[in-house]
């Protein structure tokens, strides 16, 4: 297994280099260091001299990919914006933000906890609720519970998450006055701010979840081993919750493990509406502010997490299915 993991990590290197090049090219196709400087310095009273000074101070005065003026072959590539800004990413040195010179690693570290506060309970409780309801629906397959459960699931998944957020805030925060409409705090006070976004997060994801897991369970309940279990006289609930659930773990894990690394990235809409000080809007705001340092860092981190997620998924298969081996 160790050899497999090392091999996968080595595969990741060219992928990450490629991601960096693509992000760099995309960013500077629609932008220029001059445009960055003007956006960051503001629109008023800015002269080319101010722009040039900003570029010099922030390392954007160099050529993008190839420095013809540099002496020596190596320097022609290293004395460039791409190399200077991207090379350190591989040792997870994200540097400082272009807009306010703040250390990016610290910012990510500070903000990810707030995202996790909402995302982890939403994810875990959502998983629990989704699987439970899906199993119930599967248990009552071809009855009115299954029929109406599926219809309600389709309706829920057809409505935008924004509707649930605004509706939930209006209903529980404004009309019933049971929860703060938005906000965030530390300690025990945190609980009252977390309940509403978590409930809304679970509710808005329940439709898709039920449909997905129901399909998995229905596939399982028609298999031979289930028929055998029933023939042995096991009750339907034991068949479903003990045997079918265990065997449905591979498709569930594919869906679940891949999502875990992204939990800390937060949710853009949820965090914006509930004033959760997380990472949900970090990248979008950096794009709007033309803060290339944050954009490249977050995209890089996202790529790493995606690769880690895939690796974790593969490893988790071996844990739930003894037939799968990497050797």
């Amino acid at each position: 297994m160790l050899a497999y993991i090392i091999r996968r990590i080595l595969y990741a290197i060219p992928i990450l280099i490629g991601v960096n090049i693509i992000v760099f090219v995309l960013f500077f196709v629609i932008n220029s260091p001059d445009g960055m400087a003007r956006s960051i310095l503001g629109e008023k009273n800015i002269t080319q001299e101010d722009v040039d000074n900003w570029k010099r101070q922030n390392g954007y005065h160099l050529p993008l990919f190839f420095n013809t003026a540099a002496a020596g072959v190596a320097k022609k590539f290293t004395q460039t914006i791409f190399f200077q800004k991207s090379a350190k990413l591989f040792v997870f040195d994200f540097g400082v933000s272009d807009t306010n010179n703040l250390d990016i690693t610290s910012q990510i570290w500070e903000r990810m906890w707030a995202s996790l506060t909402i995302a982890v309970p939403t994810f875990l409780l959502g998983l629990l609720v989704n699987i439970t309801i899906s199993m119930i629906v599967a248990y009552y397959r071809a009855t009115y519970v299954d029929f109406w459960g599926t219809i309600v699931a389709v309706i829920i998944m057809s409505v935008s998450q924004l509707f649930y957020i605004i509706g939930g805030q209006w209903l529980f925060g404004k009309l019933f006055r049971l929860f703060p409409i938005s906000g965030y705090d530390a300690g025990v006070e945190l609980l009252k701010f977390v309940i509403l976004p978590v409930v809304i997060g679970i509710l808005s994801g329940i439709g898709g979840g039920i449909r997905f897991y129901r399909t998995i369970f229905l596939e399982e309940v028609n298999r031979d081993y289930v028929r055998t279990a029933r023939a042995k006289g096991m009750s339907e609930s034991v068949v479903l919750f003990k045997h079918a659930l265990k065997n449905a773990m591979i498709p569930i894990l594919t869906n679940v493990v891949l999502a875990i690394p992204f939990l800390f990235m937060g949710s853009l809409v949820m965090e914006a509406f509930f004033a959760i000080p997380g990472l949900g809007s970090f990248t979008i705001e950096a794009i709007q502010a033309q803060d290339f340092a944050i954009v490249r860092s977050m995209v890089y981190l996202g790529s790493v997490l995606y690769i880690v997620g895939l690796l974790m998924t593969d490893i988790s298969y071996t844990l739930v299915d003894p037939r799968i081996r990497f050797d």
């Binding site: 925060g173 006055r177 049971l178 703060p180 409409i181 938005s182 609980l191 701010f193 309940i195």
Partner: peptide, 9 residues
């Protein structure tokens, strides 16, 4: 928890 907590942020 919800019933016991008002909406004061």
């Amino acid at each position: 928890i919800g019933c016991g907590v008002p909406n004061n942020p």
